[in-house]
Design a binder for these strands. Structure first.
Lengths: 311, 311
DNA sequence: AATTTAATTGCGTAAAACGCTATATAGTGG
DNA sequence: CCACTATATAGCGTTTTACGCAATTAAATT
């Protein structure tokens, strides 16, 4: 008998509904079903009366529930006695782009769930550019974002990985491709004026891009301003023009065949991608624990963990 | 956390010796070692101080021991409350031949260990023919044996499988083989007198064999009387003569290449192989539970379970 | 009758546990 | 001092267990 099984039983005994318990417990319906079956097999008693429509506790089930409750409590007690904090529970609200959700956050959340199984993760996805403002406004606890040039003092930033910004062009035959082939994009004198650009509407990438254009004294022909790197990559893939995005997003887009990098000189800078959160909120053990797990997952040196990380 | 782990910990905390605990728990030393390591990992505390020479409880270890004891007791309590008898513990003494130990007993013991992990099995092997007398004398609780023609009323017999007795001859070129090839052994007039026989010293097989000889009016040329079917098969394999054994033993002997069956008419009877025990001892829940598991394992119909099974 | 909701089951896969064997290390006896 | 025993741990392949997905069953609802 193990506490995991007991927790499943207790949840089902509470909800009297396998589906709901399976969601609360973050496991599949079939796993819940089999766990209960194994349990009944092990105790040799039917604990939950169920037809295909409803679930009820049996007599032995009621007795067993008392036992299960006490046993789980005892376990939690001894853990707390040993100063174990993995009992943390509550909810953390995250904000990130679709790409970041599985290219950056996934490994973190996997480790986090193992260490703190009782914490619920509420994840919102959208344009990566909105991350900082959502954090500042307090709507989310932690965001995955590129590091802004000027980090507001209220914010903490934990750099996880770098990804170079790249100009992207469609691979297939199209007007854009033809123009590119008729010259050297690395040449300072290359004529960009006739090429339609698809640029970010706002955010760090927009800032870095504008800066680059200014430095090269290029006045780009803006075809579209788009929210979200993913959308930029998609539009470039459709042949609508040249875009900008971090390599990370391109790699994850599944459009690597339809899109290719455009070499330019000087190169575009790299985006420092990492976690972003209000310093104040980081004092909460809940938020802090996710922050720490992220640091461990990406092997961030301890001294960088809570600073603003100039770099 | 599961009770299995707790039991391992409690055992080690008692013995302060991994090796001894591994024996008591019927698991390998490495399994014990890793179980403790995992446990310490899970509770985040060193519970047992150990160097390569000795084991001691740490402070947290002592606390945890109290918790573990209570938790295991609670578990046993609820099981007993549900009328679960798998808490049985003690020792059962078995007697069987080497062959029977893994061809007959193994599947039974496997199921039994699962259902009653706390019961120790003491197994003695030797000539199958001695099984009945060892049971009658009370030396062992249960024996695997061929069913005797006359079953003493104090004995219960649970038939598990039949195995035909067979005459065996060496396969390779030898004097014995030559004689066999020069005639038809199925013929009533076949001359057996010059063939050396290797026969059982005592037991059911001897009785059945003697009967067959008498019915055929054959006066066999006895070369050797041997204790144990396995030894008979081995001697036949060495070319020393013709022997008798149940097919089961031949199959299990690993000498199927060196030994072949000798067709005779009429055929030798079959041995009914099964469990044998004193009726009185079967009243013990310990012995009875093994008996029952055997019946289930071999799909014995319930009405045959405790009778003498004429057949 | 078609659809929806809820639990079970078949099946392939992934994780956990195990055993065997090798290794490390400290006592023991000749 | 060296072989030898006893004890715990580590590497590695195998077995067992648990899980998720998808198909299925079955009742309730539209």
């Amino acid at each position: 008998m193990d506490t995991k099984t007991l927790r499943v039983f207790l949840s089902v005994a509470d909800t009297l509904n396998y589906s709901r318990s399976s969601e609360l417990l973050h496991m599949s319906l079939s796993a819940v079903s089999r766990t209960i079956q194994r349990l009944e097999e092990e105790v040799g008693q039917r604990l939950l009366e169920r037809d295909n429509r409803s679930v009820r506790l049996t007599g032995p089930g009621r007795e067993f529930r008392v036992y299960a409750q006490r046993t789980v409590e005892d376990w939690q007690l001894i853990r707390r006695q040993f100063g174990d904090e993995s009992q943390l529970s509550g909810e953390i609200s995250l904000y990130c782009s679709v790409t970041a959700s599985y290219r950056v956050l996934a490994p973190i959340l996997e480790a986090f769930r193992k260490a703190y199984p009782a914490v619920d993760i509420m994840m919102h996805t959208g344009d990566q550019a909105d991350g900082i403002s959502r954090i500042l406004s307090g709507r989310d606890d932690i965001a995955v974002s590129g590091r802004p040039l000027e980090l507001p003092p209220r914010l903490a930033f934990l750099p996880l990985q770098d990804s170079p910004l790249q100009f992207l062009a469609p691979t297939g035959d199209c007007a854009v491709r033809e123009i590119l082939n008729n010259g050297d994009t690395r040449d300072l004198n290359f004529d960009w004026s006739s090429i339609p650009f698809i640029v970010p509407e706002r955010g760090i990438t927009k800032v870095l891009l504008d800066e680059w254009f200014r430095a090269q004294s290029i006045k780009p022909n803006i075809y579209a301003q788009v929210a979200g790197h993913e959308a930029i990559v998609a539009m470039v893939g459709l042949g609508l023009g040249i875009g900008v995005a971090p390599e990370l997003v391109v790699d994850a887009s599944g459009m690597t065949g339809k899109v290719s990098y455009v070499p330019v000189a000087p190169k575009l800078p790299s985006l420092s991608i990492g976690l972003c959160g209000l310093r104040q909120r980081l004092e909460s053990p809940l938020v802090r624990s996710l922050w720490d797990v992220a640091g461990e997952t990406y092997h961030v040196p301890p001294d960088t963990m809570h600073g603003t990380s100039d770099g």
